[in-house]
Every structure is written in structure tokens, then in C-alpha cells.
Design a protein around this nucleic acid. Structure first.
Length: 181
DNA sequence: CGTCTTTGACCGGCGC
DNA sequence: GCGCCGGTCAAAGACG
């Protein structure tokens, strides 16, 4: 029902539009977001410029460029092997969408929501519900352009997608299957 | 009844 | 030390 226009800085075509399934009409309010590790959008992180988080926000609010990588774990304290405190790299991209929830096949549980300074929209915090998977994400809408939703991922999924029917690649493969050639 | 959201409390880092 | 701020916890509630 909803169309997402996703902007990929690495893509030559600039943007692509395709229908994702949304959970606006679904019963349970958990939502799924794309985060496939090797082939998904997060995988684009290797080609991203890495900038401080503030710069990320600045860029995201100024232009409709969509992808950024946060290397804030480089400033980790001199702690060896302690993976407790270190910040994992974060990957942000923005989506032009009317709904905040992008469904990509992963199951997320919301664990917090905070008001953001200089922004009239709250930021939502989600965690992957898969046992042992610690991937987190934030979803935030910009005051500057409320049509844009910024999603920030932290960590990599250590498991397969749980809802393959809503996976974008599955949609693509289905399109290939059902396309008469 | 289990799963997920809501929402105020709590916590740690940082600047003053 | 104190207050702000961003992030997280957890109890209670909503909803299938």
C-alpha cells in the first residue's frame, strides 16, 4: 500500500521505487527492517565515507544523500577484548517514506523512544529479537523534511532473515519467477 | 497467554 | 557536583 523511495548513493540510477510490505495494517506492531549483512543495504557500508556522527546528521539534514558510516568505535577506550563498551560502527541511510516502519524480514522489538533536540519528531530505538543477535537500530524523522526517515543500524545480523517472504531479494526473485519470459 | 509497545525511570558521559 | 543529553531498562498495558 505504501511506496518507499530509497536513495542509494552508490547506485547509478539514483533511486528506485518498489513496494515493501508495511505493518501499518498488520496486527502485531513489531516491525521488520532490512539489515541483511552481506548482500543487503548494510553491505554497502564498505563503500561509505566515514564521518563523525554529528557530521552524519548534518549531511543527512542538508541533502537527500542517504548513506553514511559511523566509525565511532575507533574512539573506543583502551580496553582490550572488552567488547562491552566499544561502540560498533553504525550505518545510516535515509528513506523517503510516509511511514516510519520499513519491513525487511527481520523482527525488531522497540525498547525506547526519546525526543530529539532540534527535532519535533521522536527517535525510536529497536533491537533485533533473534536470540543472541544484538543488532540495534534507530529510526528518526527529520524536522527539515518530514518526508524523510533516517534509519541507523548498529551491528550485523548473525542469522538468516526470519521472514523470507518479505525480503526484498525474495520479492525480486519472485518477480523474476512470475515474469513471463 | 505470549509477544510486542508504551513510557517514565534510570544511567553514564560530558561540559560547566 | 550538577544538570543536560542520548541511550536503555522494565513494569504495565495493548492486542492478537
Amino acid at each position: 500500500m505504501e511506496n518507499y523511495q530509497m536513495f542509494f548513493p552508490c547506485s547509478s540510477t539514483g533511486q528506485s521505487t518498489y513496494p515493501f510490505s508495511t505493518n501499518t495494517g498488520s496486527s502485531n506492531a513489531y516491525h521488520n527492517l532490512h539489515g541483511e549483512s552481506s548482500k543487503g543495504f548494510i553491505g554497502l557500508g564498505t563503500e561509505n565515507h566515514h564521518v563523525p556522527r554529528d557530521e552524519v546528521n548534518k549531511q543527512l539534514s542538508q541533502r537527500t544523500e542517504s548513506f553514511a558510516r559511523d566509525e565511532s568505535d575507533e574512539v573506543k577506550p583502551s580496553k582490550k577484548k572488552g567488547e562491552k563498551k566499544i561502540r560498533k560502527p553504525r550505518y545510516a541511510f535515509q528513506t523517503r517514506s510516509q511511514v516510519d516502519i520499513l519491513d525487511d524480514g527481520y523482527r525488531w522489538r522497540k525498547y525506547g523512544q526519546k525526543a530529539v533536540k532540534n527535532n519535533k519528531f521522536p527517535r525510536s530505538y529497536y533491537r533485533c529479537t533473534y536470540q543472541g543477535c544484538n543488532v540495534k537500530k534507530q529510526v528518526q524523522r527529520l524536522t527539515k523534511d518530514e518526508a524523510i526517515v533516517v534509519t541507523t543500524y548498529e551491528g550485523m545480523h548473525t542469522h538468516q532473515i526470519e521472514k523470507p517472504t518479505d525480503n526484498f531479494e525474495h520479492i525480486l526473485s519472485q518477480m523474476q519467477i512470475y515474469t513471463p519470459f
